[in-house]
């Protein structure tokens, strides 16, 4: 049983009264009935906004974090006569879901896929808070936020983000703690942005100003020192690699086997299990590009899968030669 049930009741109720459609035929010749029609129309007019207000999203606020996850806050008006209400969520990968009724009363929820059933028990307003990992994807350095919004919404962009593409027209924009907050109307939208590191955003903000020659010289010297440092570090790592091989061998022994991982994480998806099996058979680590080739998955899909496994503490992502190296983590513990 859900919210949709009550709507036909309301429509039927109006039809049963029959004031609109039965009596209007007799109105023009007999003006005596005009006040009755007027009263009926006033009631109907007043009722329309009320009907619209049932199970409608009153507020939708989204906050994008720097790792691409999104916090969703939604305030929904519902029919107080229904015992439960099904809320459609933005995606399947949901964390930290809390549904609260009037007076901040914690409501019981049961999430299945991309929807959650909330036991409302007479609440006329509920608020839902959750984090989703399915609204933002990443390709290269470009992050893309995509949404099909059921209502008007606000969107707080991450810090140091620079918008480089947008498919819908924003209604408002304001700056909150150095973060851009945008307002949009309901409907589809896609926003492309990049994240600048704190240093790069500072550079970009000062590019219009002429640079002092001494600053360029100092900057150049620092950059050269950093590059030389990196070269030395890499050479040192290469020479010390041989010594470390025995240590890495012991580390690989500590990596749990897939069966143990599946027992500790019983709710894993089948495709994620295949990824784990592949990494395990590959010596406990694999490049993300190798995973893409193996499973013929696009970059964003594999990125999401890898992030999902990272969130569950199964793998860790390490940068290696500008690529993502995915490693099985040791010491996996049972989920709380």
């Amino acid at each position: 049983m859900n919210q949709e049930m009550i709507v036909p009741y309301r429509q039927d109720f109006i039809q049963e009264d029959g004031m609109l459609f039965v009596r209007t035929e007799g109105i023009p010749p007999t003006m005596i009935k005009a006040p009755i029609i007027l009263a009926g129309l006033i009631i109907v007019t007043a009722a329309i906004p009320l009907q619209n207000s049932f199970s409608s999203t009153k507020t939708l606020d989204l906050i994008i974090f720097q790792d691409g996850s999104t916090h969703v806050f939604s305030l929904i008006e519902i029919d107080p006569l229904e015992p439960d209400f099904t809320v459609n969520l933005f995606g399947n990968s949901i964390d930290n879901l809390v549904a609260v009724g009037e007076n901040d009363f914690l409501l019981y929820t049961k999430t299945t896929g991309s929807s959650t059933l909330v036991e409302t028990f007479g609440s006329s307003t509920i608020s839902i808070d959750y984090d989703t990992h399915d609204l933002v994807s990443k390709e290269g350095r470009i992050w893309t936020f995509s949404i099909q919004a059921p209502s008007d919404y606000t969107l707080l962009m991450p810090q140091n983000s620079i918008i480089v593409g947008m498919s819908a027209l924003p209604q408002n924009m304001e700056l909150i703690n150095e973060q851009t907050k945008l307002s949009f109307l309901n409907g589809p939208n896609e926003i492309n942005y990049i994240l600048g590191t704190p240093t790069s955003s500072q550079t970009s903000s000062s590019t219009s100003e002429p640079l002092d020659n001494s600053l360029i010289f100092i900057g150049g010297a620092i950059a050269s020192a950093v590059i030389i440092g990196i070269i030395f570090l890499r050479k040192f790592q290469r020479t010390s690699k041989k010594i470390e091989t025995t240590q890495t061998k012991t580390e690989s022994i500590e990596t749990p086997d897939p069966e143990t991982i599946f027992q500790l994480r019983p709710n894993l998806r089948e495709d994620d299990k295949e990824i784990i099996n592949f990494i395990f058979n590959n010596g406990g680590q694999a490049l993300e590009s190798e995973l893409r080739k193996k499973f013929l998955q696009p970059r964003t899909t594999m990125w999401r899968a890898v992030k999902r496994l990272e969130r569950q503490g199964i793998i860790e992502i390490v940068k290696k030669d500008l690529q993502n190296l995915v490693k099985l983590k040791g010491g996996l513990e049972e989920e709380q």
Partner: peptide, 14 residues
């Protein structure tokens, strides 16, 4: 914005 997105995709891959 459409053009800037296209440019970003072309130049920000590396």
């Amino acid at each position: 914005m459409k053009i800037f997105k296209k440019i970003s995709q072309m130049i920000l891959e590396r």
